[in-house]
Design a binder for these strands. Structure first.
Lengths: 252, 252
DNA sequence: GGGCGCCAAACTGCATGCAATTCAGGCGCT
DNA sequence: AGCGCCTGAATTGCATGCAGTTTGGCGCCC
């Protein structure tokens, strides 16, 4: 078996886990945009399994809030409302404050090295695609959570961080991840120094600024219902301006 | 339909949702103790569905951490370690502080009435079984979370509260829910008064005391591995003292 | 008598098949 | 042309069947 991180949680089974991880990654890298359709058949075919398994994977992802499941309808990548996004960030802030509080001054040398290596990787990926930067930034936070050795905390932080990613792809502008990297470095430094209060406030403001960079206005760019998307076009009734429904990305 | 919180999340489908709710309730009322076996067949038969559905339900519950799924083995009700229990309570405190912070001074009259009614119900159930008291106490917290209108927060608070219930059935002594009721009343009062700081500290100490009442010692009564259970018997090698393995509760 | 190994029963892992529902596009009507 | 109905294709909901794994109990051997 490959040295998968496996974990001992639900999606460990095997095939289901593989599909979950793949989809999760595709979603947070925005290869699958919110609203993208995820038919069981295509998924199953793509991963070489039956619908049963694909279905199960979709169920798991739905439980994490990454996928929306409507009865008798094709599953789609979740499209959080602006309010839900805000809520997610609020929760995330509390959870991650808990993480760094537990971690302050308790990191081993190896852990610090791992963290630094990760931030270096983030740095290196700066001229790659946005998608990768976002994923790496998110994974930094998950990495931190893992160091608490609290499976529950890891799970919640991961989930909520993924959700925030989803949000980012909906409501944020072209993006600027640069400052985030410096903030990550600052957090590591404060953790090493063991200044609990400092690191908590750093994490708080870090996440707060990420949220604010993302959730600038309650009027999304591509967000929510297509009513919003079409609003700007509502005045100019040019018929050839009508966009052909982009036939959202199929998974196969 | 009962005024269930239903929500728009995963287990809405129907049958799967029914099974999830039933099992969840059975678990938190300790009708199913940690470690109890949950064979797909029996579940399916009991609820009049096929294994496919039962399986799916188990998957959902596993994602919530109430059920443990091991490959090729019968699913069992989760048995959180003492450390996991501690972690769960830590997370719960943060989340619920968030809840009451959002709620302070913002409750409608109707909501206050609902809360009071619930606490009255708790009061009325004091001479019922412990199981019911525990469930009601937990539901009070979930009720609060629901009033935030944040589905994500509701989900997380519910999950972690259920987990804590599970813990209680493992590590706590015969129990005393009495004081909890008064603390609930105090929280409502502070919420109405709108004293944010006060209500947050009340909630904090409330949960803290619940946790401490439950997680007294790192040496559980019936908890964890049976190694711990058998430790006291290790010295007296009386053969007729050997307890017949209690053949954990089957679901049918 | 106690421990070890084997075998049948129990159970899970997964695919497939069928019924029910939704979806898309074409046809007729206005 | 525009609008709505209607029908077939696509898709989900669910049960069942088969293969592989685990379980636990019986008999055998020590």
């Amino acid at each position: 078996m490959a040295p998968r991180s496996a974990g001992k949680n639900a999606e460990s089974s095997d095939k289901v886990g593989v599909i979950c991880r793949a989809l999760r990654r595709a979603i947070i890298e925005q290869a699958l945009e919110p609203g993208a359709k995820l038919p069981e058949d295509s998924l199953g075919e793509r991963f070489g399994v039956s619908r049963t398994i694909a279905r199960h994977a979709l169920g798991q992802l739905a439980a994490e809030g990454l996928v929306e499941l409507r009865r008798n309808r094709i599953a789609v990548v979740a499209t959080p409302s602006w309010q839900e996004a805000r809520d997610a960030f609020d929760i995330r802030i509390e959870l991650e404050r808990l993480v760094v509080r537990q971690l302050a001054g308790k990191l081993t040398k190896a852990q610090v090295a791992t963290l630094n290596a990760h931030v270096d990787a983030e740095d290196g990926a700066r001229d790659g695609t946005d998608a990768v930067s976002i994923r790496l930034a998110t994974e930094f936070h998950i990495l931190l959570a893992q160091m608490t050795n609290s499976p529950i905390l890891v799970r919640y932080v991961s989930e909520v961080a993924y959700r925030c990613c989803l949000t980012l792809s909906l409501y944020s502008r072209p993006h600027s991840t640069e400052c985030a990297i410096n903030e990550h470095r600052a957090i590591i430094a404060a953790l090493v120094k063991g200044d609990e209060a400092k690191v908590m406030s750093l994490m708080h403001s870090h996440l707060d600024s990420v949220a604010n960079r993302a959730l600038v206005a309650p009027t999304p760019q591509r967000g929510r219902d297509l009513l919003d998307i079409l609003a700007p076009y509502a005045e100019e009734g040019e018929s050839d301006r009508v966009v052909k429904m982009p036939k959202v990305v199929r998974v196969r």
